[in-house]
Design a protein around this nucleic acid. Structure first.
Lengths: 249, 249
DNA sequence: GCGGCATGAACAAGGCAGACCTGATCGAGG
DNA sequence: CCTCGATCAGGTCTGCCTTGTTCATGCCGC
């Protein structure tokens, strides 16, 4: 999926290609600027874009074998959030768990993607849009609501739009992920509930332990530790960051 | 910057917080799904989100020193694009190099980027000017425009909003970053021209070499190599990817 | 606006994959 | 049309990931 594909996928949700284009570009712009200026951009569950300092080190010119000094540099990094990791890991892990039917769906999805030249993909995209034509009117209503500032209403809109995408991309996602996507909910919006459901499944035998921990959490922090974390993290053997850090303590 | 901050930063460009929220969540959703299902999401210059397989390996429990097998896993990865890398690296590197003249060049480059899709550019530019009239009322209009698909008008709005952010985080950012952002333009849109300006500065003495290479490039490829690239890349010592790859050859 | 719950950061030691160096070519993307 | 991106070579050094705990932050729902 390239930028155009991404915009195509977003268009139904965001009120058209132009809006989707604006969204992609604006978001990329903001992230770039923030990271370039020393900040970080964190979306819980998805991940964090940040800047890291890399100390000088030695490289090799593979051609000549000559040692080449790699100067200290500053580079962008994305650290995937746990939910992102889980979702990506689950599809791979799930096949063994999943049903054959799900596999079949997986194969179908994969095949269409791998063998599909861009043009074929586009036509598929168009068909998908066709399928979404009906929701278009609903979309108009949604934009109204958006103007009134009701994110949840926008989210409500996502389901019907996302559903077709799910069926396409869903093959490898199903199983646990299917649980997450089945409702057609925006993942970021549903992360917590999804995660909760997962944990509930995995740890339903730990309920007592959880209730214990929740009671301990009610004690709340006192004054907070005010522990300041450097933006570039670990400080272990790391070059000192030029980041100012955000004192939220 | 967290999700709320990001939405705050995007709101002026996208017609309000609701639209910005939808944008962020939709984009994250699409990326998550695509990567989870084995695909990748590439935005030229910004970077590529993809899925990689990690072979089984051995870790250590730092507490006990005990060796712990880390099963083969599938994990998300973001590979920053060259422009992102340059922008992040330049703030640190450019202060020494920066010149106002170069800034002008960047701005000019951005202006000359008329090579982009003409139709989108034109409508965007026109509305952008109009859109700057009154911020408060503009927001209402912006949402309308978002519906009608006018990204660049929203973009033009960015400068005034981004400037404060820069000045806050800017200490380390200015200089190079300022050069890039001075025009208040959307970075992704201006990436190519900015890069070009940079290269022109660095390599203006290599013009002859470039003209030589351009002539050699005119010979064009014959039949193409049809080299197939696996989605998970390098294959060098890597676990075989489950990705089907996109046969575009 | 607040509360509850999930996420994220930090830390410990060790091993190995990944990043990055240069330079050339060609295809893809915008 | 021009830039970006992928690939490749060999060597060096960094970062990821393991477990488990604690505390702070983020974010969604009420």
């Amino acid at each position: 999926m390239n930028k155009a594909d991404l915009i195509e996928a977003l268009a139904p949700r965001l009120g058209g290609r132009a809006a989707a284009t604006a969204a992609v570009e604006a978001l990329v712009d903001v992230v770039l600027r923030e990271v370039a200026s020393g900040g970080s951009v964190a979306i819980t569950g998805f991940g964090t874009f940040e800047r890291v300092q890399r100390a000088p080190r030695t490289g090799r010119n593979p051609r000549t074998g000559e040692r080449v000094p790699i100067a200290r540099t500053t580079t962008p990094r994305f650290r995937p959030g746990s939910y992102f990791k889980d979702v990506v890991a689950d599809p791979a892990g799930l096949p063994a768990e999943g049903s054959a039917g799900v596999r079949g769906a997986v194969v179908d999805g994969a095949a269409s993607r791998s063998g599909a030249p861009p043009s074929v993909r586009r036509s598929a995209g168009e068909e998908a849009r066709g399928g979404r034509a009906a929701p278009a009117s609903r979309e108009g209503r949604a934009s109204k609501r958006a103007a009134s500032g009701t994110p949840s209403s926008v989210r409500k809109e996502t389901p019907s739009d996302a559903a077709p995408v799910e069926s396409e991309a869903g093959p490898s996602a199903p199983g646990g992920a299917g649980l997450v996507f089945a409702g057609g909910e925006d993942i970021t919006a549903g992360m917590i509930s999804a995660k909760k459901a997962q944990l509930a499944r995995v740890k339903n035998d730990q309920v007592i332990a959880e209730s214990t921990s929740s009671s301990s959490k009610k004690k709340k922090n006192k004054g907070g530790k005010g522990k300041k974390k450097g933006q570039d993290g670990k400080g272990k053997g790391k070059a000192t960051s030029t980041n100012k850090g955000k004192g939220k303590g």
